[in-house]
Design a protein around this nucleic acid. Structure first.
Lengths: 125, 125
DNA sequence: TTGACAATTGAACGGTTGTTCAACTATAAT
DNA sequence: ATTATAGTTGAACAACCGTTCAATTGTCAA
C-alpha cells in the first residue's frame, strides 16, 4: 500500500474505510454550524444564562446580580447568544428583557442536561 | 429599591424574579459539566472526528488522511475526546482503532445535527 | 435640560487552546 | 538487531476568547 494522493504525513492504512467514510461524510458546512452551536453553549457563563432564561425572561441587570458579574460581561455574552440566535430580547423602557429564542434551544439544553445527570448517577456506581 | 447584598455594579430591578431564579437554579457543578460536554464538541476537528466515528471505527492514520491533517494534530484531539469519554480506543498491533464511547454520544450528535439541518431549511424561507 | 441608570460597545489584558515540530515509544517485518 | 511505521507526547507559537475598564447611547424622571 503506497503513498496516497492526499497531502498528509500518512499512508492510507485502510483505504476501503477511508473511501467509505469519504462517501458518507456529512458536508463540512453542516459540521461547522454544529461546532458553532456547541461553542455558543460551551462557556460556563453562557450555559448559566441559558439555564436561567429557560425558567423565565430576565433583564441584563438581574442576570448580572444572579451570576455575580458585571452588567458589561453579561451583556457581551448575551450578544454572543443573540448572534447565535439562541436568545432573543424585548425592550421595555430602559430595560431589555431576554428570553430563549425558541423551544428548540430549551430542548437541546434539556437533552444535554439529562445526559450529564445520567453520567453523574452512573459515576456513583 | 435600594442596593442589594450582592457584590455587583447593579441594583436589583426585579427582586422577585431574581429570588425565584435563585431558588430554581440548577447546581453549578452540573452546568459546568454541561459546558465541558459542549466544549468537547465545539471544535471543527473534533466534531468531524465524532461524525466519522459515528459511521465506523477508524485508526488515527485514516482519520488524518480523511481530514487532511497530521497524525499528531489528530492524536491530540483524540486525546481530548478520550478524556471527555466521548470516544474509546482498541489497540491491534501497531494500529489504534477509535470509536464512539457509547450510543449516548451518537444520540447527542444526532440531535444537534437535526437542529442545524432544520435551521438550514428554515433559513431558506 | 439635567441627572440617574439600564444597557451596549471597543480596546486591552491575560488565559486558553489548536496546530506544528521534534523527539520519543511500541510493534511488526526483514 | 535494524528498519519502518503507527501513535503519543511536550514545548512553543499564534490565534482566539472572556472579562475588565472607560466611554457612550437611550430612556425616564425631576
Amino acid at each position: 500500500m503506497g503513498k496516497n494522493e492526499f497531502e498528509c504525513d500518512c499512508d492510507v492504512i485502510h483505504e476501503d474505510r477511508v473511501k467509505l467514510a469519504k462517501k458518507n461524510m456529512i458536508e463540512e458546512e453542516t459540521l461547522l454550524l454544529m461546532a458553532d452551536l456547541y461553542k455558543a453553549l460551551s462557556d460556563s457563563t453562557r450555559i448559566k444564562i441559558v439555564a436561567i432564561l429557560g425558567e423565565q425572561e430576565m433583564c441584563v441587570c438581574d442576570i448580572a446580580v444572579l451570576l455575580n458579574m458585571t452588567k458589561s460581561a453579561v451583556s457581551h455574552q448575551l450578544k454572543n447568544l443573540r448572534e447565535m440566535e439562541l436568545v432573543k430580547c424585548r425592550k421595555e423602557g430602559k430595560v431589555v428583557f431576554y428570553s430563549l429564542a425558541d423551544e428548540h434551544v430549551k430542548q437541546i439544553f434539556n437533552i444535554s442536561y439529562s445526559h450529564v445527570m445520567e453520567e453523574k448517577i452512573e459515576g456513583k456506581n
